[in-house]
Design a binder for these strands. Structure first.
Length: 472
RNA sequence: GUCCCCAUCGUCUAGAGGCCCAGGACACUACCCUUUCACGGUAGGUACCGGGGUUCGAAUCCCCGUGGGGACGCCA
């Protein structure tokens, strides 16, 4: 049974790179009818916060990436880590080191100055025939893992292929701090082992940790899982993702009006491919997903493409669902969402034209507020030529059947009788009724509003234009 | 500095020795559609980092170089 996990540390929100890692891990488990676990790596008490835990959980939920087991918290497994450390100490695969952080800094500086890789020199590492100095009184030791000195650690990375690291490159890493708290690389090993993780799918930045973790796993006699290291996601500008790059948290995509299925589809396609397929459902993704088609190189985020996908999914989304997603956005703006026209009717007419939910809200808003079209738009469209035909349209409006086809017929008839082209009347109507020059078919927009509102907005606009003409 | 990873259109990618004088998508340009703007449709331009090998044949395999990234914590 395949078991994968997503193991974020709760020091911030769920960012887009983490979301992709989670997605791939989740999909791999789904694809193989396995289990997907969520583990919160909160051993850094200083930087971990409950808010961050909530943010991560919230992000996962928004994306719909449900875990089968967990969330497990490392802070709740301390007893287990301590027991394993004791066991390793007893077995000789770990030892106490009394070197102070200051001494360590000195050593590293010297090594760096000499052009060498900074690393622990093994001075407290027990060796046959080696006499260790007596432990300094009153100094609490850290526990270090006794890393093998010879040979290589190698694994066949499911994304990058075979990777080999000489043990000579590795030093004896600290697995427990002076205060007894276990460190990251150690907790990961114990957790992956205890939780029966078969496939570790994680970010590229962990490649360097892998040989160390494999060595610990082997010292413990644990089975080594398979590893798949995903390359990182770069910002739109090709730079490393950071707070400066706008939307970094997945929840910011929600705020910006993206649909989760669009973000998911985009992320799925970023660094993974299935031939020429671009648009596919989550379910389809789960059926197709495999590690063989993951790109080994870093991928640059492309907002244009995400926007395209979002617009696509907006067109496909159910009207009722979209209306309920738009409603809170309108309410947040203080717009009193009325019942005529209904939000669903507006969304149904407009969803094909919106790039995101906020744009949809922009379009819907004009139907519920006290509208004041911009003066320059009025001046541009309520021309001397347009006013008479507008007048006739207003006069005949009370008689027309209140549905788009009949209204469209009336518009055409008015325009024809005045020897004008369609836009001459359509544009003033758009501007007067919505304050915008771009709308769907104008007869449909007219039909959406109550007859009284249309009459009021048109008459007010016409009268204002007439008096402006009169005074000038 | 040392170690590790990566390298096809502007971007995401297809490609696992001949199907590729390199395909798709986003973006871009033009045209069509049109009641405005989108949508949609059609067409177009743009790429195998460089150099050596291996081979009858290389975008695909090997080596070197160059460029980019990551790691070197009592952070995760």
């Amino acid at each position: 049974m395949i078991r994968t996990r997503f193991a974020p540390s709760p020091t911030g929100f769920l960012h887009i790179g983490g979301a992709r890692t989670a997605l791939f891990s989740w999909a791999y488990a789904r694809r193989h009818a396995g289990r997907f676990l969520l583990r919160i790596e909160d051993t850094d008490l200083v930087r971990s916060t409950p808010e961050a835990v909530q943010a991560i959980l919230g992000g996962m939920q928004w994306l719909g990436l449900e875990h089968d087991e967990g969330p497990f918290y490392q802070t709740q497994r301390m007893d287990r880590y301590r027991a394993v450390i004791e066991q390793m100490l007893a077995a000789g695969s770990a030892y106490h080191c009394y070197m102070t952080p200051e001494e360590l800094d000195h050593l590293r500086e010297e090594q760096r100055a000499a052009g060498a890789k900074p690393r622990y020199d093994g001075r407290w590492r027990p060796e046959p025939g080696k006499t260790l100095p007596p432990p300094p009184a009153g100094r609490a030791p850290v526990v270090r893992f006794r890393n093998p000195t010879a040979g290589v650690v190698a694994w066949d990375d499911l994304v990058k292929g075979r990777i080999e690291i000489a043990n000579a490159e590795l030093d004896d890493l600290v697995i427990a701090r002076a205060d007894g708290a276990p460190t990251y690389n150690f907790c990961v090993v114990v957790d992956d082992w205890d939780m029966g993780i078969t496939h570790v799918i994680r970010g590229d930045d962990h490649v360097n940790n892998t040989p160390r973790q494999i060595n610990i796993l082997q010292a413990l006699g644990a089975e080594v899982p398979l590893y798949a290291h995903l390359s990182m996601i770069l910002g739109d500008d090709g730079q490393k993702l950071s707070k400066r790059h706008g939307a970094v948290s997945v929840m910011q995509y929600d705020e910006q009006g993206y649909l989760p299925e669009a973000v998911l589809n985009y992320l799925a396609r970023l660094g993974w491919s299935h031939g020429d397929d671009e648009i596919f459902s989550l379910q389809q993704f789960c059926e197709w997903f495999d590690l063989d088609h993951i790109t080994a190189s870093a991928a640059q985020f492309n907002t244009d493409k995400l926007n395209w996908l979002n617009a696509h999914y907006l067109k496909r989304a159910g009207t009722a669902r979209l209306a309920e997603l738009v409603r809170p956005r309108l309410q947040a703006r203080g717009v009193n969402v009325g019942t005529i026209p209904s939000l669903t009717a507006i969304v149904d007419l407009y969803k094909e034209r919106a790039g995101n939910l906020n744009e949809l809200a922009d379009m819907a808003e004009v139907f519920y507020i006290d509208l004041h079209p911009k003066a320059e738009l009025l001046a541009k469209h309520l021309t001397a030529e347009a006013l008479p035909v507008l007048g006739e349209f207003i006069d005949r409006l009370p008689e027309v059947a209140w549905e788009a086809a009949a209204i469209g017929g009336l518009i055409k008839d008015c325009v024809t009788r005045h020897g004008l082209k369609m836009p001459r009347l359509a544009m003033p109507l758009r501007v007067l009724l919505t304050g915008l020059e771009q709308t769907p078919s104008v007869d449909a927009v007219v039909a959406l509003l109550p007859r009284a509102t249309v009459l009021r907005r048109l008459a007010a606009g016409r009268d204002a234009a007439l008096s402006a003409a009169g005074t000038s």
